[in-house]
Design a protein around this nucleic acid. Structure first.
Length: 837
RNA sequence: GCCGAAGUGGCGGAACUGGCAGACGCGCCGGACUCAAAAUCCGGUGGGGCUCACCCCCCGUGUGGGUUCGAUUCCCACCUUCGGCACCA
């Protein structure tokens, strides 16, 4: 017998798969009439092509491959494509460092990654491969930008934005983590710049509503998105500044506390600040305060425990419910980006307002009376003495005609009465901001917009797409994209009037590229349109999407948004792109998340080289449940290799000692052959459920290991009889079939040695019900819930028989002797519990 | 502070709907094979106790309570770790 030598085997089978086009899926001739239940779109999040794949990628693509191969063997038409999220900062930064062009560097990297994926034996339809930096791809990214623009979903405005001083570009809100750039961790600055946005807030409600279509998504991802969108119900209320005849709207979630508003606040950035203070004695101080607030880094401003600061404007606003004049302050704890940038402050019922009021000596007026969590009661006159705001529910006080009512229903009533007077209305506010998509960097899709002095902002006509990213000599960022210095690119003709005009030089956020790539896969070579709707509608939505949790908000929310817009454009007939989502856990090593920056990465290539791809694939899934973080163990992979060696020797021995014709499935004689046959069918059942329904690859693999262990113990005896050899042949073939999704190379090789041809066309084994049931089982006998004995009983024994058997147990009797039998619990198939006193 | 997930042998982890805790693997110990080693094959391996004859007993799934004939699993409180959000009115 030859030794298990993964190197030769793996290369050989990868060659055969490519040559036989084993994983290429043709589009159905008429997608409209094809049966969509027969297809399965299995997709892993596309990789960013940095130098090479890391272990997280290996886990991701192996999981996807197991599912793809399993489904394909179960008769589904599996769609399993791959591509590269190829635009982005790292390539550009590397270009600056090395002097290589980003395009060239990216090309090299994608080639390397494709090589690695092929070396892992992932079953991909490579004819659909794409890279988002390819003009044939980003042409359509630009096309979508224009369609968004037409619908008013892409717009440009001056706004306070997040600026990363190190990356020299603006960032979307989603890309700022705790006040720092998610990419380089530099502290983000606040700048006011004219930028391009996608109006994702217009879809906030639908993004929330359609969670009902995502019942197969992990709860935590939905929760994270729901929190991110942050829907709050409340009211918009108008406060009037009499002297200036100005109405300032505020948003509040607590219209019930309106009678307790004792002051009014504006964000420092609020556009009316200047108008309010003009000519007042306070003007200079307010201007000074505003300037200071603007200069403060975003992180400082967001610090929760900071003391409240502010400046009186010298003006008063009129509370619409009681006509009271309350002082207007400017304070930096009011955010311009949320609500209306102005708030009514109710110190008795909002902790932040409370802190401000105490600091500035403003009246605290209780308008909701109720009980605190610690049992103390807050009453109408407690304003001067209370130590903190009362934010819970209660009964209305100090609120005129609303006194005595439940605060929740009073809130609705107050809103209604304001609405009748035209001074307010019920309203909903979201935490979600519009998606800032322009970037001041080079390596991205140029925004297809032209500025003309005469015609203003003019979209590039569709037929002139793509707007090609020009080559430049110097990629160093200077606060605007390097392409701005390319005169040839910038200067152009206005598509409208033909006069001289200038191109937009910002490029698009790479998350725009990855918001629709799954659609392009369905029709990747179409040069007339982004994709053919009928074809896309056939393959989409993605039946199983797999990726890391780190994209729970960013990519997954953007892709959902994009899909909804495309639905509204009539381009697709589904509202959600990913029916099922699986978020994999991270790989830890030496107590920390495996990452380059921590210097604790384990290189997959080395392990492929040393043990083969099959071993790496097997081990990475065997490590633990796929959705949880798991710990990489250097010696663990050795166990995977040993197991495959065991399978190798076993199957080869079966090939040597049995004939293919000896294959029989039925062991009539009972004894060891029957036992092993049973175990085999039970294993098929477990593996099928674990892989197909539960995604518990670790337990599926351990079930196969158990089977192999049993065969080792029984084989010497079984080789002696015809029946035994027949069963061994069956077990060997079944084991190989079940191992295939995890370790496809060795499985294909062994399948061939067993005298067959292409394993990837073989149907998945089916468990025979007849063999799942045992004739006898071990009945557990408990006394007072404690295990005392196990006895063999016939599978069909009834309750009475079980009870008698249990009573007859000598071991149990020792514990019941001399005691009174109080109760007997019988669970057929499991146990008998004798309760004594 | 709020929301979510997780705490099980020396280690990674099993236990599907409340029913034999520790499957499977790693490591370790012992045996077989060998001149020897490696590889391989077989056996053992939670802790403690015992008239350790492998028979048996007690304890044991982060901590403390509870429900139940019976709890790793359900409920309550707390501790620890990780992830998300964090002045969002």
């Amino acid at each position: 017998m030859d030794k298990y030598s993964p190197k030769d085997i793996e290369a050989r089978w990868q060659g055969i798969w490519a040559e036989k086009k084993a994983f290429e899926v043709p589009d159905p001739d008429d997608p409209a009439s094809a049966d969509p239940s027969r297809k399965s779109y299995v997709l892993e999040m596309l990789p960013y092509p940095s130098g090479s794949l890391h272990m997280g990628h290996v886990k991701n693509y192996t999981m996807g491959d197991v599912i793809a191969r399993f489904r394909s063997r179960n008769g589904l038409s599996v769609f399993h494509p791959m591509g590269y999220d190829a635009f982005g900062l790292p390539a550009e930064n590397a270009a600056i460092k090395t002097g290589l062009k980003p395009a060239e560097l990216t090309r090299r990297n994608t080639e390397n990654i494709e090589k690695q994926l092929r070396a892992l034996g992932v079953s991909i339809d490579w004819t659909r491969e794409l890279a988002t930096c390819d003009p044939e791809y980003y042409r359509w990214t630009q096309y979508f930008f224009l369609r968004f623009y037409e619908r008013g979903l892409a717009y440009r405005r001056q706004a306070a934005v997040n600026w990363c001083p190190s990356c020299q570009t603006v960032l979307a809100n989603e890309q700022v983590v705790q006040g720092a750039c998610e990419r380089c961790s530099s502290e983000v600055e606040n700048r006011s710049l004219a930028q391009w946005f996608f109006r994702i807030t217009a879809y906030a409600e639908r993004l929330l509503e359609d969670f009902r279509l995502l019942d197969q998504w992990p709860e935590r991802v939905i929760t994270m998105q729901r929190n991110w969108i942050g829907r709050s119900e409340g009211a918009e209320v108008l406060f009037r500044v009499d002297e200036l005849e100005l109405d300032i709207p505020v948003f509040t979630t607590r219209p019930d506390t309106l009678f307790g508003a004792t002051f009014f606040l504006l964000a420092p950035e609020h556009e009316l600040v200047e108008q309010l203070i003009e000519g007042t004695d306070e003007a200079a101080a307010v201007r000074e305060y505003v300037a200071q607030a603007r200069a403060k880094p975003a992180t400082d401003r967001a610090a929760v425990d900071r003391e409240k600061t502010g400046e009186f404007t010298g003006r008063y606003a009129v509370n619409p419910v009681n006509g009271e004049r309350i002082p207007i302050y400017v304070s930096d704890y009011v955010l311009m980006e949320y609500g209306t940038g102005a708030i009514m402050a109710v110190p008795a019922h909002d902790q932040r307002d409370f802190e401000f009021a105490r600091r500035f000596g403003i009246e605290v007026r209780v308008v909701v009376s109720g009980e605190r969590e610690d049992g103390t009661v807050v009453r109408a006159g407690d304003g001067d003495t209370m130590a903190e705001a009362f934010e819970a529910e209660g009964t209305m006080v100090n609120s005129g005609e609303f006194d005595g009512r439940d605060n929740r229903e009073a809130g609705a009533a107050i809103t209604a009465s304001l609405e009748a007077k035209g001074l307010g209305k019920a309203d909903v506010s979201y935490r979600l901001r519009d998606w800032l998509v322009s970037r001041q960097r080079y390596w991205g899709a140029p925004i297809p917009i032209i500025y003309c002095d005469k015609c203003g902002t003019v979209p590039v006509p569709e037929e002139r797409l793509p707007v090609l990213l020009p080559e430049v000599d110097d990629y160093a960022p200077r606060g605007q994209s390097p392409i701005a210095s390319n005169e040839e690119f910038v200067n152009t003709d206005c598509p409208h009037c033909g006069g001289p005009a200038r191109r937009e030089t910002d490029t698009m956020d790479t998350f725009v590229d990855s918001s629709w790539y799954f659609l392009r896969y369905t029709d990747p070579h179409n040069d007339e349109q982004a994709f053919d709707s009928a074809v896309a509608n056939y393959w989409m939505p993605v039946d199983q999407y797999i990726g890391g949790v780190e994209h729970a908000i960013l990519h997954l929310m953007y892709a959902r948004f994009f899909t909804k817009v495309l639905y509204d454009l009539g381009m697709v007939d589904f509202q959600e792109p990913f029916t099922n989502l699986f978020t994999q856990g991270m790989i830890h090593y030496r107590g920390a998340k495996m990452s380059k920056s921590k210097g604790n990465v384990v290189n997959p290539d080395e392990h492929v080289e040393r043990y083969g791809a099959d071993t790496l694939r097997l081990y990475i899934l065997f490590m633990g449940p796929p959705e949880l973080d798991v710990e990489w163990q250097d010696q663990g992979i050795e166990g995977g290799f040993r197991f495959l060696g065991r399978v190798w020797r076993l199957v080869n021995e079966v090939v040597e000692k049995t004939e293919p014709r000896e294959y029989i499935e039925y062991a009539n004689g009972g004894g060891k052959p029957l036992e092993l046959l049973r175990k085999t069918h039970q294993t098929i059942d477990r593996v099928t459920v674990d892989v197909g329904e539960r995604f518990r690859f670790n337990t599926a693999i351990s079930a196969i290991m158990e089977l192999v262990n049993d065969v080792y113990l029984a084989k010497d005896e079984l080789f002696q009889s015809t029946e035994g050899r027949g069963v061994l042949r069956f077990v060997a073939e079944t084991t190989v079939k079940m191992l295939d999704p995890f370790a496809p190379h060795i499985s294909s090789e062994l399948w061939e040695r067993l005298g067959h041809e292409w394993l990837w066309r073989e149907p998945w084994p089916e468990a025979d019900e007849e063999y799942l049931e045992e004739e006898t089982y071990e009945l557990v006998v408990q006394v007072n819930g404690k295990l005392r004995d196990r006895i063999k009983v016939p599978a069909d024994a009834d309750k009475q028989a079980l009870l008698e058997a249990a009573r007859a147990s000598g071991k149990a009797a020792r514990h019941t002797e001399g005691k009174q039998l109080v109760k007997e619990i019988v669970v057929p198939g499991k146990l008998v519990n004798l309760v004594v006193k």
